[in-house]
Design a protein around this nucleic acid. Structure first.
Lengths: 224, 224
DNA sequence: AATATTCGTTAACCGCAGTTAACTCGATAT
DNA sequence: ATATCGAGTTAACTGCGGTTAACGAATATT
């Protein structure tokens, strides 16, 4: 059974790949708050375990086995987050850390039980898709709200789950996954985005808008 | 924060003391499935951490700080077991291992939340008392059923939680914490104990009876 | 009382995951 | 074509929790 460390590295590689495409040593060192040599060494180990393929001085890529492991851990994380919110009454800004620890220590039976108790959910409280037990995950189609340059009707899909402060802010504004919003305009000089959320006008900094992911509403033309 | 290893040692010392009185190096090595030198080394470390007092070649004793740590971990364990059974629908014979892992990784907030969701319970599914957050625990008054030599009306308080097989067996017989039972007789040559449980006569081996703990029912004289 | 046995501790070592310091590779700039 | 510079890697070391082998202390045996 892989150690929590191995699981963390594999998860970080998966996420870095999803976010950036490439996966550099330095990138991982920063994400995992360890030194670059620690990453180098672990890459050799993960190669031996056939979880990654790694040509030195080139990037690193998950093998199918590595991807499956990453998705299993992410499945744990997101199921736990949802269970904490839905079944236990934790707030959505307080569950990330707890899930970050517990994801490494629950059994398959526990995983199956919460999946069942939650009715086989497809997304965590922050809107991220929950991988299947088989190691597949729904494709992401949304884009950062910050990239939306013209007024449009949009639907919030996901928000980044790592910054509790941001989550509390977004909840206060009503910007949560599943919510329909309208981008009205952006104030000049990289100013805040002006949104309509549930009838109310709210303003959101470009910083925050980078961490909110939206889809266009079908039938709405971006430039209308 | 103490490592899972440190927590396991402290918990084992607490339990060995509760079970045996004395706490020898070998005893701990067996309970923890490690070698005796590993225990010796850890004892030095725990001394430095002021969690135990340890005169070499004599026994070992928890300090108040060590006892508090032990009780905190045991509190985690028993709350988790009860939550798994009561709130999630796990069977009482399947929760020990899960709790054994999770007890090291839950936050104080999680501990408080399950305590609250369960209505501040006082015992785990196997009847063991749940320590308070302050580090106190209800005194144990019960004795092993195997020690009861004469017929008597008894109440089942606790059963050992470590053997899943035994737990399934006891559940099938109806011998569970809180149940009133009557010891009718013991068959000769160290034979099984004959009990009345909920009107039915059942037989229980002395082996199993060592792991069932009972109190006398008030007003019942043992020898009647 | 002398000796045998058992238990506990020390010594030397291992694997894991991390560190800092030194070096090497590869892309870039002159 | 070569000097440079940053990213990646290797080397040497640390702390943790474990191991086996050797040794010393306490207890039991005769």
């Amino acid at each position: 059974m892989p150690s929590p460390s191995v699981e963390d590295y594999i998860k970080a590689i998966y996420k870095a790949h999803a976010d950036n495409g490439s996966v550099a040593t330095q990138e991982l060192a920063e994400r995992l708050h360890v030194s670059a040599p620690a990453v180098s060494k672990m890459m050799r180990k993960l190669s031996v375990l056939k979880l990654i393929s790694h040509a030195p001085y080139q990037g690193v890529k998950l093998t199918r086995a590595g991807e499956k492991l990453a998705l299993e851990i992410i499945r744990h994380h997101r199921l736990i987050e949802l269970y904490l919110v839905q079944a236990m009454g934790f707030s959505w800004d307080s569950v990330h850390e707890e899930a970050e620890r517990l994801e490494h220590h629950i059994s398959e039976e526990f995983e199956d039980k919460i999946d069942e108790l939650l009715g086989h959910p497809t997304a965590c409280p922050h809107g991220d898709p929950i991988p299947t037990r088989a190691g597949t995950i729904a494709a992401i189609t949304d884009r950062p709200l910050a990239q939306q340059r013209s007024p449009a009707h949009l639907i919030v899909r996901r928000v980044s789950d790592e910054d509790a402060e941001l989550l509390r802010h977004l909840q206060a504004l009503g910007v949560t996954p599943g919510t329909a919003i309208e981008l009205v305009t952006q104030e000049p000089f990289e100013g805040p985005l002006v949104l309509k959320v549930g009838g109310k006008r709210v303003r959101l900094t470009p910083q925050a808008a980078k961490k909110v992911f939206v889809d266009a509403v079908a039938g709405d033309e971006g430039g209308k």
